[in-house]
Design a binder for these strands. Structure first.
Length: 430
RNA sequence: GGAGAGGUGUCCGAGUGGCUUAAGGAGCACGCCUGGAAAGCGUGUAUACGUUAAUAGCGUAUCGAGGGUUCGAAUCCCUCCCUCUCCGCCA
């Protein structure tokens, strides 16, 4: 959420910032709502104050044995007026809250201008794009050849956009997650954290999925107010909801391996083949909670941590800064990491690393006691994939494939595969 | 799922309708005292919102959450959440 005071006092400036992401702030609406809010709030608080004074004098009059009926009549009159004012006020506050809750974060000044993903700015490129002496297969064909990926069975068990993994491919998938967790905990200073895979609507509001993006989520049936998590960012970031952290608890760095569930409501027809876009996938998520002045540097570090996984796996990738039109709802600045997929002959997103500044923290009421000011101040939160495990599996299969349909195991994963160096194709025997 | 006990400020803890403006204590901060410290004494010590030039005043709200009764609710009523104990079930 944006700072209501800023939206109120400098709507033009906010509108200008939001224009970068092609969001139009209705300035007239802001001002109209604010004007009404102010007068209704003042009126209703004044009436309340009057009533409180009367009620106190009733207590005193009673003890002094004086008549209280005149006071009772006055209060009765005040209460009626107050009830009206309060009802209008509550309605208006609700409207104002909905309006503010629907405003996206302001992009940083450094965010590139642009309308969509085509305008994203490439800031780095790493690794050699592999040249194959044969036509590379895609991961679906490879997975079938390895007897390790079955999308038809998954559709029978559930529906489209699910996968069944078996044998060495399933183990490779597990190895990837283990490897990522080990690197982030042992070398990058993250605390391994296991979290609920279902969360309530307060949590989803805190990170910004609600109220605007409910159709992207799987909701648990019944009146329990639970949703399957779309990313571990939600439970992880909500660990600091409604809390005031001590200076020495910062910065907080968490790494969380979890399944992620997305309804992909708006993506019918996109990436229907294979496991690029699934209803369920696993991800190793990095979350940082930091002092405000640290967040810009923290995003560079966090993105570097994600990049380090790609580098150790020797997977070619590029790093892009998302443009204003492509940046997510809660983000002030985002780097996407895109891995090279030979069969698609292009780079595909495998990680998205964002600094949300105080946007989530304000929704979460996540604060720290700033020792310099002695005040409770909003924190900054960041998150990034380190990495999406399913897509990393796809990238390994496609980039490490050999002409006979087997797939060699990246060096760093071999210890996690019991020393296996090659996953043989179906029917092959060493 | 059943029965019972609870949830008060940074912490402990009092408080069953109005001198509660949440007692008292601990902790913390500052001051006095001291050669220095401790003890002692004194003062202060929540958050959010509004108003405001203001981190000054003033107002409103907050005793797990939300409703209700009442002129007035930490206190009475209802619903829900959470914690603890016992029982049942289960991995």
């Amino acid at each position: 959420m944006l700072d209501p005071k800023l939206v109120r006092s400098e709507p033009e400036r906010v509108a200008q910032k939001l224009a970068k992401r092609h969001f139009t702030l209705d300035i007239n609406k802001v001002q109209a709502l604010e004007e009404q809010r102010k007068s209704l709030q003042t009126r209703s608080e004044t009436l309340q104050s009057e009533q409180n004074l009367r009620s106190k004098s009733i207590g005193k009059a009673k003890q002094a044995g004086e008549p209280i009926q005149p006071l009772l009549d006055e209060v009765d009159n005040l209460k009626q007026q107050k009830a009206q004012a309060e009802e209008s006020l509550h309605q208006l506050q609700e409207e104002l809250h909905q309006f503010l809750a629907g405003l996206p974060n302001m992009p940083d000044d450094e965010v590139p201008e642009g309308a969509d993903e085509n305008d994203n700015l490439e800031v780095a490129c790493w690794g050699e794009i592999p040249r194959f002496s044969f036509t590379p297969k895609d991961h679906v064909a490879l997975g079938e050849g390895l007897a390790g990926l079955d999308f038809k069975k998954a559709a029978v068990l559930a529906r489209a956009r699910f996968a069944v993994m078996q044998g060495p491919v399933a183990r490779l998938h597990r190895a990837l997650a283990q490897f990522m967790l080990d690197v982030h905990t042992n070398e990058h200073g993250y605390l391994e954290t296991a979290l609920p895979f279902m969360v309530n609507s307060d949590s989803l509001f805190g990170t910004g999925q609600l109220p605007k993006f409910e159709e992207d989520l799987f909701k648990i049936d019944g009146d329990r107010d639970l949703y399957l998590i779309p990313t571990a960012e939600v439970p992880a970031t909500n660990l600091v909801r409604d809390s005031i952290l001590k200076d020495e608890e910062l910065p907080m760095r968490l790494v969380c391996h979890s399944p992620c569930f997305r309804s992909e409501a708006g993506s019918a027809g996109r990436d229907t083949r294979g496991m690029i876009r699934q209803h369920q996938f696993e991800k190793v998520e990095l979350v940082q909670v930091v002092r405000p002045e640290e967040s810009v540097a923290a995003l560079e570090a966090l993105t570097g941590h994600a990049e380090s996984i790609l580098q150790r796996l020797q997977l070619p990738y590029r790093k892009v800064a998302l443009c204003g039109g492509d940046i997510g709802f809660a983000a002030a600045y985002t780097y996407d990491l895109e891995v090279w997929l030979p069969a698609q002959d292009c780079y595909r997103e495998i990680s998205s690393c964002s600094n949300t500044r105080d946007f989530q923290a304000r929704r979460l009421k996540a604060r720290w006691k700033n020792p310099e000011t002695g005040k409770n101040e909003l924190l900054h939160t960041l998150n990034g994939s380190g990495l999406a495990v399913g897509r990393t599996l796809v990238a390994v299969l496609e980039n490490y494939q050999q002409e006979d349909g087997s797939v060699s195991v990246p060096d760093v994963l071999q210890p996690y595969m019991g020393g296996m160096t090659v996953i043989p194709a179906r029917g092959q025997h060493d």
